[in-house]
Design a protein around this nucleic acid. Structure first.
Length: 649
DNA sequence: GTTTCGGTTCTTTTT
DNA sequence: GAACCGAAAC
């Protein structure tokens, strides 16, 4: 009996609902897991269960929202087993597609060593398309808006024309001009052999649709497919799941329609509700027993979601014993909110909470700016996952440019970035030079060097020579990435950074981190892919491993998804801030989605929960704007919360 | 013709 | 804090 290969007593470790999900037999399975009901635990035990049943790890596919989540689940599953379970494919949809496309990209007209455009690359490329058509006047949509249109079209499998008509009908722009620019953008990506995030998904799906024969080995291989956070999949991702699980139909999707918060990225929570329609023999299991939060928090959660009448109602059942009601802190303004939070943190610390037991959550990054300053002043250590992704910061992208270039001689974006670092060289000069080189920097031979040095003047000449020497030493085989990175920093970037950035030391430290990481990858291409697809949470997980720092966490609610803390503080629970007026306006379901976001925020809390409600906002012109408490607060039965006035209210 | 710099404006959420 | 614009500087 291969069941004996595990020491786990599944029945004892799980409740009846979880046990049913973990030990379910073959066929499609939908697990509706409300917040804090042991969703991750169920997935982890399912992985262990499959392994204990003798399913080879390499025949299991686990799709998650971040790579961190996948890594954690796989580690936890492995620790349950006596036999090794490594070899499971686990990661985000983008990672899966990237892996498949590296092998099969030529089928759809791409080289296998295509580059991945991150948000920043995509922005500059589309910006260049706008300029090339001389459309860069004030009224023309900004690159971010244009990219948004492309992205929506891709993620929802709709035509760009339809999206443009819908999104830009009020704006005073010529839809044909927009369409032309977007076609140029698509052509530019093809020319540069590069894909943006959406292309990875769309092209990944194309492999299955257009080259089904070639993909059958994967269909055979994946005996079991498990999908976490299924409520946040968009149509392309849902199709991908359907395709990859088509052969064995052992597909387990886990999610909670209450926690669907990515509609703006094409996700549709009806996806999870219609799953049984697509798979007629679906077994549905509901997890409703909450182990995370005290009953007073759950009372608020249950009351809050009643505001969304069209959703599939479920009620969280508490298991923890009564504690006290969540706190509603009425403060005067943002400054006082910040002082209140610092004070409240001290109180929590006195009550025995460690710094990393506490999270401060907010709707948008800028809501936390004032608090960040106050925390710094008061010397409270915190970690924040800021709006800019770690690997998208300027200094990281700068030092990766020469590496991208030695790996892909045709990487125009990297060339322009690199050359623009030189004194006296801007985008224009760099682009002209690139064209004179015929759109490639194959090797820094005499002729190429001559061309480049002739185009440069002053200090730029010597700087370039030093950089070129470093790049010439690169050997494509083996782990040579760190040599290029190190050489580039020593020969040029260190001095450049010190002259350019106020916080150069810190940035150079980041770069050092990157260099020490670089050799862990089996190839430069793997390093570059990884860097492009790494989320903030992934990057930060690495950093935390190293520093082992216990700190208060600041995070957007979106990035807090799937996490939990003993104490949670939510900032700016006022109209005009949360719900975000923009999303309420933009779509019919906007308010409902914001309410789900509020639900996600408060269900992160295990024990302590505090909402801050400032009475006024200080505007940049020095004016004062009164603000009402958020509708999400006022619509709650008042006796669910403890009210407290802080400071000079 | 380009680059660079300073001032101004606005800030949703992310792979 | 970053993107945009206009003007000075090269």
């Amino acid at each position: 009996m291969n069941r004996l290969s595990t020491a786990v007593d599944f029945e004892k470790a799980l409740n009846a609902e979880q046990y049913a999900a973990v030990t379910a037999g073959e066929g499609p399975l939908l697990v509706l897991a409300a917040a804090g009901t042991g969703k991750t635990r169920t997935l982890v035990y399912r992985l262990a269960w499959l392994a204990a049943q003798g399913v080879p790890p390499s025949r299991v596919l686990l799709l998650t929202f971040t790579n961190k989540a996948a890594r954690e689940m796989l580690e936890r599953a492995a620790s349950l087993l006596t036999t090794p379970s490594s070899g499971i494919w686990g990661g985000t949809f983008h990672h899966l597609c990237n892996r498949l496309l590296r092998r099969h990209a030529e089928r759809i007209g791409f080289a296998s060593n295509y580059t991945i455009l991150d948000r920043d690359d995509a922005r500059s490329l589309v910006g260049r398309c706008v300029k090339d058509r001389k459309l860069n006047h004030r009224e023309f949509p900004k690159p971010d808006v244009l990219l948004d249109c492309v992205s929506r079209a891709a993620n929802c499998s709709r035509s760009v024309e339809a999206i443009i008509a819908e999104r830009l009908d009020e704006a005073d722009v010529d839809p044909d001009a927009v369409l032309k620019v977007l076609k140029d953008y698509a052509a530019a990506k093809q020319r540069l052999q590069s894909m943006d995030f959406d292309d990875l998904l769309v092209n990944g799906l194309r492999l299955f649709v257009e080259h089904a024969g070639e993909m059958t080995p994967y269909l055979d291989r994946f005996l079991h497919v498990l999908v976490d956070e299924y409520q946040d999949t968009n149509p392309v991702q849902a199709s991908l799941v359907d395709r990859v699980a088509a052969r064995h139909r052992n597909i387990m999707v886990v999610g909670d329609d209450f926690q669907s918060i990515y509609a703006w990225r094409g996700a549709d929570f009806r996806n999870i509700l219609s799953f049984p329609d697509r798979y007629a023999d679906t077994r549905i299991i509901k997890l409703e027993t909450n182990y995370r939060s005290v009953p007073e928090v759950l009372a608020v959660a249950n009351a809050c979601i009643r505001g969304n009448p069209d959703q599939f109602q479920k009620t969280l059942r508490a298991t923890r014993s009564a504690y006290q009601r969540p706190l509603l802190a009425m403060v005067r303004d943002g400054g006082e909110q910040a002082r209140f939070v610092v004070d409240y943190l001290r109180r929590l610390r006195r009550d025995g909470y460690a710094p990393d037991d506490i999270a401060i959550l907010y709707r948008a990054h800028y809501h936390a700016m004032e608090l960040q300053m106050e925390l710094t002043r008061e010397r409270v250590a915190y970690t924040i996952t800021s709006g800019v992704r770690f690997f998208e910061q300027a200094h990281i992208k700068d030092v990766l440019a020469p590496l991208r270039l030695v790996e892909h001689a045709g990487d125009e974006l990297a060339f322009v970035r690199l050359l623009s670092l030189l004194p006296g060289v801007g985008e224009r000069t760099a682009l002209k030079l690139w064209q004179s080189l015929g759109g490639r920097l194959p090797a820094t031979d005499e002729v190429t060097m001559g061309r480049i040095t002739r185009a440069l003047k002053g200090d730029a000449v010597d700087a370039w020579k030093a950089i070129a020497r470093v790049m010439a030493r690169y050997e494509p085989m083996g782990r040579h990435a760190s040599v290029v990175l190190k050489g580039f920093v020593e020969a040029f970037y260190e001095r450049h950074a010190l002259n350019t950035f106020e916080n150069a030391e810190q940035r150079l430290q980041d770069v050092d981190e990157l260099i020490t990481h670089a050799d862990r990858f089996e190839s430069t291409e793997a390093l570059l892919s990884e860097v492009a697809l790494m989320t903030n949470l992934d990057a930060e997980a690495d950093a935390v491993d190293k520093q082992d720092l216990k700190r208060v966490r600041l995070s957007t609610i979106h990035q807090a998804k799937g996490l939990e803390w003993p104490a949670v503080i939510v900032l700016w629970m006022t109209e005009g801030m949360f719900p975000s007026p923009r999303s309420v306006q933009e779509s019919a379901d906007g308010e409902a989605e914001e309410r789900r976001l509020f639900y996600v925020a408060l269900t992160r809390a295990k024990t302590e929960l505090c909402f801050c409600v400032p009475a006024v906002r200080r505007m940049r012109d020095g004016g004062v704007m009164p603000c009402e408490p958020s509708r999400f607060i006022t619509e709650l039965p008042p006796d669910l919360l403890r009210r407290q006035r802080a400071g000079f209210y």
